[in-house]
Nucleic acid binder design. Structure first.
Lengths: 191, 191
DNA sequence: ACAAGCACTTAATGTAGGTTAAGAAATTAT
DNA sequence: ATAATTTCTTAACCTACATTAAGTGCTTGT
């Protein structure tokens, strides 16, 4: 069964016909590492589901500093939700970090699917709810924990990512500079 | 028309029967200022919709410091989404800041309503999507903007709240101490 | 195989924002 | 009205993290 269908089936049950209909509205692409599949300033036209590989979304502020919003590895969704919903130019870049296979679901098809398969409305509601909960926790963590504590949480939550992601991007995700992250890591290793 | 129904009608259209069904599953309560309607450590059983008044949700960390996650005034929803979804004890307090009229929708009724009125699935999907977008923006702002810039954004985004909310809680929302906030405000007034 | 660029480290110095403490102003309760 | 409590301000001092800079590995492309 297609991975994306399997992913959906963890939350709502689709008939074989519905599965086929769903898949017919998606498009699967392979990207080389370092490909930017969405640029800041562009309107986001798709939701992206990762079959294999690793992507990330990030912004770049005035001072040319990157800030990672999210990583997405196998089985995760990614995109620029603000831009996708509003259909206005967004602030996010979406970059392919390793050679990856990605399923694209266009906004129009996603909306058609909501009416053709109402269960998908539920699926995406739940997906978004979970995402919101995770985001709220991260926000509160940024307000109340030290960089060291945030890093520890990150390690527990995403153990596989630590192997794969360059550490300057983990630094960016938890909200410190690469230099400080390096120093902090050295400090932690001494313990 | 009931405010909560009006709120829903901005996004999906309900028939009079559906409106009545919806309202029959809710309960409206009046709370005095300073009432805590949800404590950290409890399981959140309801979504709260504010008819009038003002509420907030916040955590308290080890050092007895409060961190405001959100404010909710007239027409806004609030609760502890993590706890509501997982039905596990949460970390959030929900406090009534002014005498308020609040509509309670229990988790069970909310889920019944999803099947009885599928359009509500869409309503809450869209509500959650918007919430997620706002949260993502706030997270990125916390990573990339100074306290001063975050405060300016807050003022533009929630002009009415500035009059109503004690400034130490605005400080908490943007992520600084009340003392630093005070200093920053004095600095801004000089310009 | 080599050069060119990244990613990581280390260290000196700088700063936004935190802490502590004490008093003034504003609310709230009696 | 007055006391009690909470909120806000100010100021001296402190620290987690940023900045700058220079050097050391790694990758990656050719």
């Amino acid at each position: 069964m297609a991975q994306i269908v399997e992913n959906i089936s963890k939350i709502v049950t689709l008939t074989p016909q519905e599965q086929a209909l769903f898949l017919s509205k998606t498009e699967t692409k392979n990207y080389k590492a370092k490909t930017i599949i969405l640029n800041a300033g562009e309107v986001c036209k798709h939701s992206y589901f990762v079959n294999s590989g690793l992507l990330r979304s990030f912004t770049i502020n005035d001072n040319i500093v990157e800030h990672v919003l999210s990583f997405a590895c196998e089985g995760w969704w990614i995109g620029d939700m603000y831009s996708l919903l509003s259909q206005k130019p967004g602030n996010l870049f979406v970059e392919v970090m390793e050679d990856s296979e990605v399923v694209l679901l266009s906004k129009e098809n996603q909306e058609k699917l909501y009416t053709e398969i109402p269960k998908l409305e539920r699926f995406f509601r739940i997906l978004t709810e979970n995402s919101l909960v995770a985001n709220q926790e991260r926000l509160m963590d940024n307000l109340s924990l030290t960089a060291e504590e945030r890093f520890e949480k990150f390690c527990k939550k995403y153990p596989t990512l630590i192997q794969k992601v360059p550490q300057k991007q983990i630094a960016s995700y938890i909200g410190v500079t690469p230099e400080f992250f390096s120093k902090m890591k050295a400090r932690l290793l001494k313990k």
